[in-house]
Amino acid sequence: LILLVLTACASPDRRYWGAESQTVTIAGRDYNVYRRQNGSRISVQVIRMGYARRREHVAILGAMRVAAEQATGCRVIEGSADGDSGVMDF
Rank of each mutant, 00 (worst) to 15 (best):
A8Y: 08
A8N: 04
C9I: 12
P12C: 00
D13Y: 14
D13S: 15
D13T: 12
R14P: 14
W17R: 05
W17H: 08
E20I: 03
E20Y: 03
S21W: 13
I26A: 04
A27L: 01
A27T: 03
A27M: 00
R29V: 10
R29D: 06
D30N: 14
D30Y: 09
N32I: 07
N32L: 11
Y34R: 00
R35Y: 06
R36C: 01
Q37Y: 06
Q37C: 07
N38E: 14
G39P: 02
I42D: 11
I42T: 15
S43P: 07
V44S: 08
V44H: 09
I47C: 05
R48F: 00
R48A: 04
M49A: 15
M49L: 15
Y51C: 04
A52I: 14
R53A: 13
R54V: 15
R55V: 14
R55F: 15
E56Y: 07
A59F: 01
A59S: 12
I60E: 00
L61H: 14
L61A: 12
A67R: 01
E69Q: 12
Q70P: 01
T72V: 13
G73S: 07
C74N: 06
R75Y: 05
G79L: 10
G79H: 08
S80A: 08
D82G: 05
D82H: 09
G83Q: 00
D84E: 10
D84P: 09
V87T: 12
M88D: 03
M88K: 04
M88H: 09
